[in-house]
Measured scan of single mutants.
Amino acid sequence: MASQGTKRSYEQMETDGERQNATEIRASVGKMIDGIGRFYIQMCTELKLSDYEGRLIQNSLTIERMVLSAFDERRNKYLEEHPSAGKDPKKTGGPIYKRVDRKWMRELVLYDKEEIRRIWRQANNGDDATAGLTHMMIWHSNLNDTTYQRTRALVRTGMDPRMCSLMQGSTLPRRSGAAGAAVKGVGTMVMELIRMIKRGINDRNFWRGENGRKTRSAYERMCNILKGKFQTAAQRAMMDQVRESRNPGNAEIEDLIFLARSALILRGSVAHKSCLPACVYGPAVASGYDFEKEGYSLVGIDPFKLLQNSQVYSLIRPNENPAHKSQLVWMACNSAAFEDLRVLSFIRGTKVSPRGKLSTRGVQIASNENMDAMESSTLELRSRYWAIRTRSGGNTNQQRASAGQISVQPAFSVQRNLPFDKPTIMAAFTGNTEGRTSDMRAEIIRMMEGAKPEEMSFQGRGVFELSDERAANPIVPSFDMSNEGSYFFGDNAEEYDN
């Protein structure tokens, strides 16, 4: 993207840094990872977990959730003011799984939030270390993106479920800051804005008074975040219109849905970061690795190297396929839920299948599930090659597409044709070009129609051997075009429920 120079890199967003050079960025990201790792080690000690239990991804998720809940100030305040039966607002906890007599047992633990905050700050040299908290939120978000298709949420806001490739980060909490905003897809931002506008339509006082002023500035800020994701002048001009509207209503909703559809071809720039579970960072720190000293990046080879040398386990339900569970977590670790499966298959070195073909449910185990038949197995999170994460949407291309997802959002900077089903997408653009945004709409449609099938995206960008740390010898991959490109292809993934 041309304006790259004016933006802070995501590592800076990730670490609240002012302008830093590459070495400083690597050190501050490393410091953040160190903090998460030290916190995780301490929690495993508190909970008396064995090494194996500490490497269980379900335990990692519970521990991450506990610290996120302990620092969720708004919710904590709300819980104190609106006490609900049987919930102690000062405590947080969740299921911890232990191996007892050759069987997995679930144990519900409860801790004072104050105590968890103390352990977290102690692991982070006394700081609140917001960057580390956001990092864990993005890992949870990436896992949700890989596990669930947001059909219901899309339909509720009037969008087409086939636009799911635009929904990265749709389950990120509001408090995820600049680093969170960077990884949100165009569809996620559109959905947040539509929800806001709908509230304004239904509630006369939404934009009024002292609160209304705050609401208005939040609305304009979200519009600017979305505008910054678009790469064409016409899309940005249309966002200006939406932002400046005196009284946002149905016309703005129409414009936003139009823009979301246009992003299936004229893709937005959305950041991709490899955020790993805390149970990967903990053992690495415990083994003596100093992330701050060595430096770390979320968008280069580092996460690949770390996963190459990590042992992570997962509980497996009786009829689940461990290899499929591994694929789910591998995609989440690489922030690749909406990437082209052919690119992923090449990088991973084994075939990556669409969601609907995987015999696996989510990673988390519900409290009512029976533990008797639970097994555990090693997650295979290694890769054959590594590639640089991208934040450009890439230019655009036609490809055989599917009944489910009709476009992709690249996660890796790797040369390819970008699949999208042009006739299906263009069919949504018939007729409606009147109104105050008509010239911009016409211009956007013209650009979409001009998108050429034979153009290559990320020209000359390749993948790298894991021994090639400096990215000196790019390998331009070859793809098996007979395979499906979309992950949520004609899909039956479970729906995400809060």
Rank of each mutant, 00 (worst) to 15 (best):
A332Y: 07
T360G: 04
Q4D: 03
S310N: 13
R195L: 05
P173R: 02
T360C: 06
R355M: 04
M105Y: 00
I197R: 13
K48P: 03
L358Q: 11
A366E: 04
D302I: 09
F464Q: 09
V29E: 02
N247T: 00
V29C: 13
P419T: 06
G94D: 10
P474R: 00
S60E: 07
Y289N: 14
K87V: 03
D160L: 03
V29T: 04
N397F: 03
G460K: 00
I25N: 05
K227M: 11
N250L: 02
G394M: 10
E107A: 12
G37P: 14
L298N: 05
G158M: 07
A251E: 10
M43I: 05
G295Q: 10
K227P: 11
F479N: 08
I116T: 07
I197N: 14
Y385W: 10
G249Q: 10
W207A: 06
L358E: 08
R199N: 04
D101K: 02
E18D: 00
Q311T: 05
G394I: 08
Q415C: 02
L298F: 08
V285N: 14
N321M: 11
P474E: 00
E484D: 06
N309E: 13
A471K: 13
P453L: 09
R216C: 05
L379T: 14
S407W: 10
G35N: 08
G490W: 11
W139I: 08
E469G: 13
L68M: 07
R162F: 08
F39C: 13
E210W: 08
N397G: 06
V190N: 13
F338S: 03
E494F: 11
G460Q: 09
K293V: 08
N483R: 14
H324W: 06
A251L: 00
Q235V: 04
E244Y: 10
Q415W: 14
E80M: 04
A451E: 01
S376T: 03
K90D: 05
I444K: 09
R38P: 01
G177V: 04
P322G: 03
G126I: 14
R216W: 04
E192T: 08
C164F: 03
N334R: 10
V463N: 09
G35I: 07
Y78V: 06
R65S: 04
I444T: 00
P419C: 06
R416G: 14
R195N: 13
N124V: 04
R102E: 12
G37T: 12
N211W: 06
Q231S: 01
S269Q: 05
F429V: 02
T350D: 09
R213K: 01
A218S: 04
P277D: 07
F464R: 14
V285H: 15
I138C: 07
K31E: 08
A323V: 13
P95E: 01
E494T: 11
I25R: 01
C44G: 04
M371F: 07
C275F: 04
E469C: 07
G93H: 06
G404T: 00
L418W: 10
S269L: 13
G30S: 12
I116F: 15
G17F: 09
N142Q: 08
L110R: 12
R19L: 06
S478Q: 05
Q168P: 04
G212D: 08
S402P: 14
N321I: 04
G282E: 06
E455T: 02
E320L: 04
G17Y: 09
A373D: 01
H140Q: 15
P322F: 03
D72G: 12
R221E: 08
N498K: 15
I138R: 06
A323R: 06
M331Q: 05
A153H: 13
R204S: 09
C44H: 09
I57Y: 03
V280D: 12
T45H: 00
N492Q: 15
M136D: 04
A427Q: 04
G485P: 07
A260I: 10
T6L: 11
A85L: 00
I316V: 03
V270L: 14
M448H: 12
L108A: 00
I138A: 06
A182D: 06
V408H: 06
A2P: 08
M426D: 09
R8T: 05
S402K: 15
A373I: 06
C279V: 08
L108H: 08
G460C: 01
G86C: 02
Q308P: 08
Y289V: 02
I63L: 01
V408W: 09
R65F: 02
T134H: 07
W207G: 13
R400K: 08
F338I: 15
R102G: 15
L133T: 12
M447R: 09
N21Y: 05
S310L: 12
F338Y: 01
N142C: 06
S486D: 10
F489V: 15
M239R: 13
C275E: 09
N309F: 06
G462V: 07
V352N: 10
K229N: 12
V352H: 10
N473A: 12
L466K: 12
W104M: 04
G394Y: 14
R391P: 11
G228N: 10
R236V: 01
K103T: 14
K113T: 14
R26V: 10
K184Q: 01
K184I: 14
N59L: 00
A401Y: 14
Q168G: 02
S60L: 06
R175Y: 10
K184S: 02
D302N: 12
G126S: 02
F39E: 09
M196P: 02
Q122I: 02
G282Q: 12
F291E: 08
Y487N: 02
Y97V: 09
C44N: 07
F458T: 07
P283V: 00
A284K: 07
I63V: 13
